[in-house]
């Protein structure tokens, strides 16, 4: 990336307070277009809160969030999605009583070109993620890994430029992690989708990400290349809890 390139996503001095409790404090970082950036930190560090602010669920108390230079603050989740931000949820939330195909089709409706086009898009994403064989099944009947893929497919069908993945690898077996890591790398390289992921599986973080941003108690404590960040004493401290009783 050259210095003059505006980042795809810029989080600028964002703070979120809930009734006096500060969940995220003056956090700034950028995600360059085409990159994979991981957001890590211990539980309660404010990662999901940050995701919810980027995707429009919460409004930051202070600060700006820009997508391609455009401020997202104050837009509702639907608008943010239409501007090209797709997301998955920490606790997977497919539409349980709908079929796999319809789940993804609904994501594809964002483009506003009708059901048939959305259905074609849905098949395309199901093929890409290897879910086509499950198309007629109800989402509620899927296994956890399948549901995670389904949610990813639904997000992809919205045609995102930026994909927010909230612990998409959590709860998966090592082989399943490897498969999904390969899928994500493929999406990033083949389609140029920028990814910001909250992740605890450090093996995957190291393998996938170009940059790692570390949050602890709502504050950014590190931001850099994966190898540099994991060697940072402050990061080690926050993860191992040296100061905790």
């Amino acid at each position: 990336m050259t210095a003059g390139d505006p980042p795809l996503l810029a989080v600028e001095q964002v703070t979120k307070r809930f009734r006096g409790l500060t969940a995220v404090a003056e956090v700034s970082f950028t995600v360059p277009g085409g990159a994979i950036v991981a957001l890590v930190g211990p539980n309660g560090a404010g990662k999901t809160t940050l995701f919810n602010m980027i995707s429009g669920v919460f409004r930051p108390t202070v600060g700006a969030i820009r997508l391609d230079g455009r401020d997202l603050v104050g837009l509702d989740p639907a608008r943010v999605c239409r501007l090209g931000v797709g997301r998955t949820f920490q606790l997977v939330r497919p539409f349980p009583a709908l079929t796999v195909l319809d789940n993804v089709l609904i994501g594809g409706l964002v483009h506003g070109d009708g059901v048939a086009a959305a259905r074609a898009r849905a098949w395309h994403e199901l093929d890409r993620l290897g879910l086509a064989g499950l198309a007629a099944r109800l989402a509620a009947s899927l296994t956890l890994p399948e549901r995670k893929l389904l949610e990813l497919a639904r997000a992809l069908a919205t045609g995102p430029r930026l994909l927010l993945l909230d612990e998409v690898l959590a709860g998966l077996r090592p082989t399943e992690v490897d498969q999904l890591v390969a899928v994500l790398r493929g999406l990033n390289q083949a389609l140029g989708i920028t990814i910001l992921m909250v992740e605890h599986v450090m093996r995957a973080v190291m393998a996938l990400s170009d940059r790692v941003v570390v949050l602890d108690h709502g504050v950014k404590i590190a931001d850099g290349a994966p190898a540099t960040v994991v060697a940072d004493p402050r990061v080690i401290e926050s993860y191992l809890g040296v100061e905790e009783p």
Partner: peptide
Amino acid sequence: PLGYRWRAVREDQEAAAASGI
């Protein structure tokens, strides 16, 4: 499309909103 959006909202409002509805 409206019918599909209805069902999405029925199943999960937050997920529907995150899908651009």
